[in-house]
């Protein structure tokens, strides 16, 4: 199915892609270590088959589903998105996936479903980062979206990149990609999708509420308390000419998503 995916040109940026090597060796996946190069070193034995996904909460069809059944009805497409990390670097990545909205519709959320929460696998055996004694993150990693954000056509469930299945360090077998939000919202290796009426807890927000908000929309106007978000380093960059570019509101997707936040004070809801 990966091979059949055609590029969605309309939703893809034409900017230069980050080389495959960079995409698979520069990862923030703290379950496999906090250094950027830890995940590629520590995740290679990660078992992604069989893989179960639990659908729960305010839906008509909750249950535990095999990944194959989750993926079966969806045609994959190739989308080139900008990924802007909260640490002020960015990459352009060709993902393979399908709209999260299509997945959500199948499980028929009730009228009470206002938010979606995602959970990463909890497995201390396989994920050395979860065994760490000195981490302030409470495992498993959780992230969330408002229902309208989850249903937005840009919001992608990814199963691959660069035409291949996702490598474990990039969040195999199933990860979220929300291109107008900081990278940490794009949760990896998802085992649970939960629908709720109230705003769910999210990992970085629990770890440092003053630094990471629930929304985490890319916003050059709202700095991280410890660094500026006005610019970013687009990787790959060369040593003598760091590829510094201005960060765009909503990571350049303002036309498509700004209306979701109309009337909201984005300095408060950062």
């Amino acid at each position: 199915k990966l091979a059949e995916a055609g590029r969605n040109a309309e939703l893809s940026t034409r900017e230069t892609l980050a080389p495959y090597y960079n995409v698979i060796t520069h990862n923030n996946f703290y379950e496999f270590g906090t250094d950027k190069r830890d995940p590629v070193r520590n995740a290679q034995e990660f078992k992604t088959d069989p893989w179960m996904v639990e659908i729960s909460g305010e839906v008509a069809k909750p249950g535990n589903y095999h990944l194959e059944d989750i993926l079966a009805p969806h045609a994959l497409e190739d989308r080139v998105y900008r990924l802007r990390c909260v640490e002020a670097w960015s990459m352009v990545i060709p993902w393979l996936g399908f709209p999260l909205a299509d997945l959500i519709k199948r499980f028929e959320p009730t009228s009470k479903a206002k938010y979606v929460q995602f959970t990463t696998l909890l497995d201390k055996e396989q994920m050395p980062g979860q065994r760490g004694f000195f981490s302030t993150i409470k495992w498993p990693y959780v992230e969330g979206l408002r229902m309208d954000e989850a249903m937005h056509p840009l919001t992608l469930m990814a199963v691959g990149l660069y035409g291949n299945a996702l490598p474990p360090q990039n969040g195999a077998p199933l990860r979220l990609v929300v291109p107008w939000k900081y990278g940490f919202k794009s949760i990896k290796s998802i085992v649970r999708i939960h629908f709720s009426e109230t705003m769910p807890a999210t990992s970085w927000n629990m770890t440092a509420p003053d630094e990471y908000g629930f929304y985490a929309n890319v916003n050059p106007e709202v700095d991280h308390p410890r660094w500026s978000q006005a610019t970013e380093r687009r990787l790959p960059s060369s040593l003598l000419t760091p590829n510094i570019i201005d960060t765009l509101p909503f990571n350049g997707y303002a036309d498509q998503v700004a209306h979701l936040y109309k009337g909201m004070d984005l300095t408060q809801w950062f």
Partner: peptide, 9 residues
């Protein structure tokens, strides 16, 4: 030095 040698150095 990885995909982000600048930061690493």
């Amino acid at each position: 030095l990885g995909a982000d040698p600048a930061k690493y150095i």
